[in-house]
Design a binder for these strands. Structure first.
Length: 419
RNA sequence: GUGAGAGUAGUUCAAUGGUAGAGCCCCGGCUUGUGGUGCCGGUUGUUGCGGGUUCAAAUCCCGUCUCUCACCCCA
């Protein structure tokens, strides 16, 4: 029979890599909860309309990367490609807008994009993020960015670069858009195929194009910063001031735009200087989305958030930040009669909260110790017939090979001393 | 979606048209009482799949699938 494989671009995360995953997941929860963020879990499936309206129908994500299908009842559904749209949907659906318009939420879970897989890019990947909903003040931007950077650094990843830009808000965008269209229209025949399409639908994205001809045209393209309205300018300057004050180094990247349409004003990206990511450089990205709530049918609610890919983070994370496991105690019996005693000792130690492995068969002591070694046990408890006569067991330190005989009822106390 | 490379044991790889192999891993043993180094032994394969050429194909040809990398975009 043909052996089955996981779907293209979708991977098993095997037990051996869990120390890294847990370090990221638990480290993240711990940190954002310290900032007052609470977890929200939303469904993996949403009405496709949510992403079309939220992320934007001219984005690559919606245009060509969605896992969208019609279910048996004829509903048009999609596997979520990112987390923000769902969070805002939940925000509106459960009346937070009325009840408690300011929300600090975080999430963690699988996202789906049907792209060609490459290093650091998968069709099912795990993303975590945070959303600060309903706060317009620059201090919100600074908090989110600071939190993101603190988190990345807490994993021992460094040095990192924080790239910052402003796309402007409602007073800026129409003017800037017009200026861009004017600029690029003069050289329309030199634009690549994608960009001539973008000229109509999303001229901002041309700035981000990597094609030689388009890049040349972008060199003397108008800069957002010359078009920022007064409020947008002030907001951006204040965010920068707060970051400086908080000691978060950043660099302004005037041509940076992001691939999701909902961003307004502040956008940012954290890059790790590591070759482990292949062509990918960004480990975390985010920005302000002041129009999204309104676009999804709510009142205008300024908000900001970020998200990061767990797989990518793990690729650049040093092994030293992997979550440490509690010491393992292996209980070995010697001889058939001792198996019962070994099981008894194991049961007791487990009830006392220790991590314990025990042999299930009365194999030779040698092979049991081999197993203990393979499992990475810190200690072995040898329950042999000799010791049994004295109500004891041998406690062996697997690191240095030293061993002592102790009474069974003293085992736990001795283990405590030794750790 | 476009381009490139690669598919042989769990894994890393050898075998260039003539009997599919090695290291590592795994399992067992080396007086049923001592792991890590050592020694002995053992398991593991429709050579990704399908077709073609040939007396003979892992090897040459065609197709297909998968993986990897890059472009695009993003996490």
């Amino acid at each position: 029979m043909k052996t089955l494989r996981s779907v293209k671009g979708m991977h098993d995360v095997l037990p051996r890599s869990m120390p890294a995953w847990h370090a990221v997941e638990e480290g993240y929860r711990e940190l954002v909860e310290r900032f007052g963020y609470q977890e929200i879990r939303t469904p993996l499936l949403e009405p496709i309309e949510l992403f079309v309206r939220g992320i934007g129908d001219s984005t690559d994500i919606v245009e060509k990367e969605m896992y969208a299908f019609e279910d048996k009842g004829g509903d048009h559904l999609a596997l979520r490609p990112e987390g923000t749209a769902s969070a805002i949907r939940a925000y509106l659906q459960h009346g937070f807008q009325v009840e408690s318009p300011q929300c600090k939420w975080y999430y963690l879970g699988p996202m789906f994009r049907r792209e060609r897989p490459a290093k650091g890019r998968y069709r099912q990947f795990y993303q975590a993020g945070a959303e600060l909903i309903g706060v317009a003040a620059p201090a919100a931007d600074a908090e989110i960015i600071d939190m993101a950077v603190q988190f990345i650094e807490s994993l021992g990843i460094g040095p990192v670069r924080v790239l910052l830009n402003s796309l402007g808000g409602e007073q800026t965008r129409p003017l800037y858009r017009k200026a861009l269209v004017e600029h690029y229209s003069k050289h329309e025949q030199k634009l690549c195929e994608d960009c001539s399409r973008r000229l109509e639908r999303n001229p901002l994205r041309i700035l981000d194009c990597k094609v030689e001809g388009c890049r040349a045209l972008s060199v003397d393209a108008p800069s957002v910063h010359d078009y920022l309205g007064e409020d947008d300018r002030e907001h951006f300057d204040e965010v920068r001031r707060l970051l400086d004050k908080g000691g978060t180094p950043h660099q302004v990247e005037p041509t940076m735009v992001r691939g999701l349409d909902y961003y307004t004003r502040t956008i940012f990206e954290v890059q790790a200087e590591s070759s482990a990511l292949g062509a990918q450089t960004s480990v975390l990205g985010g920005g302000r989305y002041d129009n999204l709530v309104k676009q999804l049918g709510g009142r205008a609610t300024p908000s900001i958030g970020f998200s990061f890919g767990i797989e990518r983070l793990i690729m650049v994370m040093p092994e030293s930040t992997h979550k440490e496991q509690v010491p393992l105690v292996f209980v070995a019996g010697v001889g058939k009669q001792s198996l019962d005693r070994a099981l008894d000792i194991a049961r007791t130690l487990r009830r006392q909260g220790r991590r314990v492995e025990v042999a299930h068969t009365g194999a030779s002591l040698r092979s049991q110790l081999k197993k203990a070694d393979k499992l990475g046990a810190a200690f072995a408890v040898i329950a042999g017939e000799e010791e049994a006569k004295r109500g004891g067991a041998t406690l062996r330190n697997m690191t240095d090979g030293q061993q002592i005989e102790v009474r069974v009822d003293e085992l736990s106390a001795r283990l405590e001393e030794l750790r």
